[in-house]
């Protein structure tokens, strides 16, 4: 992993956050709702984390591309307006981590 890919990941993160922020402001009008879990966000988050952490499992696209997309998706959820997207992120991360630990153990 050299500096250039590193940069691409960061830019993807930044873009993802910005898009997430904009979309979440469009989508949710109530400020700071803490309890609900949004299914779409959850799915996006899970896919994103899977791509980031378990990218070695996906062989049909180059590894950096999958991580880039993954980071974008993760950032999309993580970067939502305050109060949204936190549980989704955590759940996505836990699932991906479980899968990762599974692959490492197996």
């Amino acid at each position: 992993m050299n500096d250039a890919t590193y940069l691409i990941y960061i830019i993807s993160f930044v873009l993802g956050s910005i898009v997430g922020l904009v979309l979440s402001y469009r989508k949710y009008t109530a400020p700071y709702v803490t309890k609900n879990i949004d299914i779409i966000a959850l799915i996006v988050s899970i896919i994103g984390w899977m791509l980031v952490i378990n990218s070695h499992l996906i062989t049909f696209i180059p590894i950096y591309l999958s991580i880039t997309i993954g980071i974008f998706l993760v950032a999309l959820v993580l970067g939502m307006r305050p109060g949204y997207g936190r549980y989704e992120t955590v759940i996505g991360f836990i699932l991906a981590a479980v899968v990762w630990i599974g692959t490492v153990l197996v």
Partner: peptide, 11 residues
């Protein structure tokens, strides 16, 4: 506090 999004400083 809820706090600003992480990306806020960049924005």
């Amino acid at each position: 506090r809820p706090g600003p999004p992480i990306i806020q400083h960049l924005l």
